[in-house]
């Protein structure tokens, strides 16, 4: 159950990061490079968080199976 929650949060965060990258494209279109860089940075951190949760989900699943 915990693995499913981690997995859902992981995929949710990865999809949420799309918003930041989309905003980054909008900022780049407006030639607002600083804002674009900030949006890319935040998006990167959100993806990274999602990926860490995904790994936790997998380790959790693996540990449950080995117990």
């Amino acid at each position: 159950m915990r693995a499913i929650a981690y997995d859902a949060a992981s995929i949710g965060l990865s999809l949420a990061s799309l918003l930041f990258f989309y905003r980054a494209v909008e900022f780049l279109a407006e030639k607002d490079y600083v804002a674009a860089l900030l949006a890319i940075g935040i998006g990167f951190l959100v993806v990274r968080g999602g990926m860490e949760l995904g790994r936790l989900a997998m380790f959790n699943r693996k540990d449950q199976r080995s117990e």
């Binding site: 992981s10 990865s14 989309y22 494209v25 999602g50 995904g54």
Partner: peptide, 18 residues
């Protein structure tokens, strides 16, 4: 496999949407 395939979808979307 679950980890790799589960993350491949968001990764492809991250390329396609922008």
């Amino acid at each position: 496999r679950h980890f790799v395939w589960g993350r491949l979808g968001p990764l492809v979307l991250l390329f396609l949407v922008p």
